[in-house]
Design a protein around this nucleic acid. Structure first.
Length: 494
RNA sequence: GCCCCCAUCGUCUAGGGGACCAGGACGUAGGCCUUUCAAGCCUAAGACCGGGGUUCGAAUCCCCGUGGGGGCACCA
C-alpha cells in the first residue's frame, strides 16, 4: 500500500533465551511489511555466540512464530535462495568479507589479549574517558601483522574506524543521526575463534540476502554509524533502516524484563498458555509503537496487513499495559465463530482435568463467550458444567433478605416446578420459575440467586436458565436437592 | 564518565503552524440495560515536562534545561 516494491525483510533473533513480546512485535512488523508488499519474510538465526546459545531456544522461536501465524518464506527449516539461514553455518562467508576489508585497508588484525583490553578500559575509565580500544595494533605495519597472522598468532579483526570526520546514519523514524567518528571505537568484526560478531554478520547477511528494510531494536542505535561505515567500506547500498523503540515495564520505568512483569508473562508461549489468542496478542502488540488513525483500534491480521505503514511508527518507548491486552483479547474472543471458540477452549478444560466433548462445549461457548477475556477464564466460569458435583458455600445459598428456612422452602418449590416440566427448554423453564417467584412473593432475582448457587456452586455464572438447560433435568434436580439439605441444616442450627 | 535516542491524560496514542478551550482507546467513577457477572450503550474526571526564541499565530519549528530510555564486551 505504502510501497509497491516487494520488500525483503528479515527477523533475526538470537537463540539465547525465551521468545518474548518484544521479538514478537518486530517479527509482526516484518511480516506485515512483507505481506503488504508481496515481498518475503525471512527468518534468520543469529547464533554466532556459542557461549550464550540456549538449547531449545530456536525451537521456541519457531513455535511461537507459528502459533502467532507469522509464517516465514525463507528460513533455516524451509530453506530459500539465499541460505543457509543460520549464521553458524555461514562462517566462511564472514571470514571472506573480513579478509576483504583487511585487504582494502578498512580493517586490521589485532593481537591484543582480552586481559590487556580490559586493562586499557579500566585505565580509561579511571580518567573518566569512554572505555575503548587504544588502537595499539592499528599502528602495526600490514606486513608485520600479516606475518604474525600467518604464524598462527591468535587475533581478532577490527574495523578501522576513521579517526576524524563524522558519519551520518539515516533512520526512517528519526531522520539523520550524525556522530563524530572520534567517538566511535575500532569495533571487533571477527573474533579470535573465527566467528563473526553481530556487526559483521548482520551487515553481510542483510546485503547478501537482499534485505530492503532492516527493522530492529533501538539498542542498535549507538552502533548504527558503524554499520553505515561498514556498508560504505564494502561499497554497498544501504537498506532502509528502522529502529523500533523498546518496551518498558508496566510502571514505565526501565526496559521490560521478566522480573518486573509481575504475574503476567512476557513470553509468547506463556501468554498462549494463559489463554490469550494470537489475534488478541498481535492486535495489542501492533499498537505499541504504531497507530493507524485517531480512533481505529481493532484489527484482524488481514486488516493489519492492509493498513500497516512504516510512516506511522512511533519512535518513543512504550510501557506494556496488560489491562489493554485483556481488553483486546476479550474483543477477539467475542469475534470468534462459536465453533472456533469451542475448538480453542477445549485444551484448557483438558488441562484442568475436565472431560469435555464438543457437543457440550458448543452449547456452553455462547454462554461464556461475552464474559471471558482469556480462554483460561472459560474454565473458571464454566467448570461446574463438567463436574459431578458442585460444592456451594452454604452461606451463599441464602437468598437476599431471606432466612435459610425461607430459602430452602423457595427452592423446594422450584424443585417441584422443574420436576413437573416435560422438558428443560429455556423459555418454558424461565416462564415457570418467574411465575413461581411471583406466586411465593419473591423477586425473580432472589429465587434465581439461590438457584444459581445451588446449580453452579458460584455466585457469578453464565445465565442461569440456559445453564440449567445444558446441565439437564436430572443433574439440576440433584444439585437443588443437595442445596436444600444444606439450607435445612442451617435452618436447624438457628 | 562519554555517546545516542525519546518527551501529549496513570497507560497506549491522534496531532506534522491556524480546523485543538487537544481527539480516540485501556483503566477509573457514575448511569442505563439486566436473574448474577460480563458484554453493549451513555456520562464524568484526566495531558501538550520547564524556559527561551522563530512567527500575526506553536502541542506542532529551533535552542537550552530537566526527565526518561538505550548503549559503551572476542553478547546480540
Amino acid at each position: 500500500m505504502t510501497d509497491p516494491t516487494p520488500a525483503r525483510v528479515r527477523f533475526a533473533p538470537s537463540p539465547t533465551g525465551r521468545f518474548h513480546i518484544g521479538g514478537a512485535r518486530t517479527a509482526l512488523y516484518d511480516f506485515l511489511l512483507a505481506r503488504q508488499t508481496s515481498g518475503q519474510f525471512i527468518l534468520r538465526i543469529e547464533d554466532t555466540d556459542r557461549k550464550r546459545f540456549v538449547p531449545g531456544a530456536e525451537e521456541e522461536i519457531m513455535e511461537s512464530l507459528h502459533w502467532l501465524g507469522l509464517e516465514w518464506d525463507e528460513g533455516p527449516d524451509v530453506g530459500g535462495p539465499f541460505g543457509p539461514y543460520r549464521q553458524s553455518e555461514r562462517t566462511q562467508i564472514y571470514q571472506q568479507h573480513a579478509e576483504l576489508l583487511v585487504e582494502r585497508g578498512y580493517a586490521y588484525p589485532c593481537f591484543c589479549s582480552p586481559e590487556r583490553l580490559s586493562q586499557v578500559r579500566k585505565q580509561l575509565l579511571k580518567v573518566k574517558q569512554p572505555p575503548r580500544y587504544d588502537r595499539l595494533c592499528r599502528r602495526l605495519a600490514p606486513e608485520e601483522a600479516q606475518a604474525r597472522v600467518q604464524a598462527g598468532e591468535s587475533h581478532v579483526i577490527r574495523f578501522k574506524t576513521p579517526r576524524d570526520g563524522s558519519t551520518t546514519a539515516v533512520d526512517l523514524l528519526r531522520g539523520p543521526i550524525t556522530v563524530q567518528n572520534a567517538s566511535l571505537d575500532d569495533y571487533i568484526l571477527l573474533k579470535s575463534n573465527g566467528l563473526p560478531v553481530y556487526h559483521l554478520a548482520a551487515i553481510v547477511d542483510d546485503y547478501l540476502m537482499k534485505i530492503t528494510h532492516v527493522l530492529r531494536g533501538s539498542e542498535w542505535l549507538p552502533t548504527f554509524p558503524l554499520h553505515v561505515l561498514i556498508y560504505q567500506a564494502m561499497g554497498w547500498d544501504q537498506p532502509i533502516w528502522v529502529h523500533l523503540s523498546v518496551f518498558l515495564n508496566p510502571s514505565g520505568k526501565g526496559k521490560m524484563s521478566k522480573r518486573h512483569a509481575g504475574v503476567k508473562a512476557i513470553y509468547v508461549l506463556d501468554l498462549k498458555q494463559m489463554g490469550y489468542l494470537p489475534e488478541g496478542l498481535l492486535n495489542w502488540i501492533s499498537l505499541m509503537g504504531w497507530s493507524f488513525d485517531d480512533h481505529t483500534e481493532f484489527f484482524s491480521i488481514q486488516e493489519l496487513i492492509e493498513f500497516y505503514s512504516l510512516q506511522k511508527l512511533n519512535p518513543s518507548p512504550a510501557a506494556v499495559d496488560y489491562k489493554k491486552l485483556d481488553h483486546f483479547n476479550g474483543h477477539h474472543i467475542r469475534d470468534l465463530p462459536t465453533e472456533d471458540l469451542v475448538h480453542r477452549m477445549r485444551p484448557f478444560y483438558e488441562t484442568a482435568g475436565l472431560v469435555v466433548d464438543d457437543a457440550q462445549l458448543s452449547q456452553i461457548a455462547p454462554l461464556v463467550q461475552e464474559r471471558i477475556r482469556t480462554l483460561e477464564e472459560a474454565v473458571e466460569i464454566s467448570g461446574f458444567f463438567f463436574r459431578d458435583t458442585v460444592e456451594p458455600d452454604p452461606a451463599q445459598l441464602i437468598g437476599k433478605n431471606m432466612t435459610p428456612a425461607e430459602s430452602a422452602k423457595a427452592i423446594r418449590r422450584a424443585y417441584q416446578v422443574i420436576e413437573a416440566l416435560p422438558t428443560m427448554d429455556v423459555e418454558p423453564l424461565e416462564t415457570a420459575l418467574r411465575f413461581l417467584a411471583d406466586e411465593i412473593g419473591l423477586k425473580a432475582g432472589q429465587l434465581f440467586g439461590i438457584l444459581r448457587v445451588a446449580v453452579t456452586g458460584q455466585r457469578v455464572s453464565p445465565p442461569l436458565i440456559e445453564s440449567m438447560a445444558v446441565i439437564g433435568k436430572v443433574e439440576v434436580l440433584a444439585r437443588i436437592e443437595r442445596a436444600i439439605a444444606l439450607l435445612e441444616t442451617q435452618a436447624e442450627v438457628e
